[in-house]
Amino acid sequence: MLRILLVEDDPDVAMVVSALLEDAHYHVTVAANGKEGLDMALQERPELIISDFMMPILSGLEMIAKLHEAGYTNPILLCSAIPETQLPTERPSYGAFLRKPYSGAELLDAVTRLRKKANMS
């Protein structure tokens, strides 16, 4: 079972999305902010990360930058309520972007595409 780390400060979104992913046979753990996400990612080494952008303590992009520094290279799906074009121009790379609010189908489709891109079975 593919392990996904969901980094999301919005508890409603975290609950609904983790249930959706579990229904699709993913193993999901949840972190409530970028700092928690960083710690859990380095400890658990999930195959894929889905992360919100605007979060307290460490933003999604700050977390990704720190993950890169720590040598984490697995694919990351970044999500945000603002369009990707408005993200800071100086930003670390990530696998894909998904605009919030998204539907369950859109999320699962984005995860599938990201897995294919990373040659994950």
Binding site: D10, F53, I82, Q86, L87
Partner: peptide, 20 residues
Amino acid sequence: DTQAVPESMQYISAYGVLER
């Protein structure tokens, strides 16, 4: 103002922190 978010204005949730 589309240009203001996230540069000068951000939305974050603190519900999880409050709960824990």
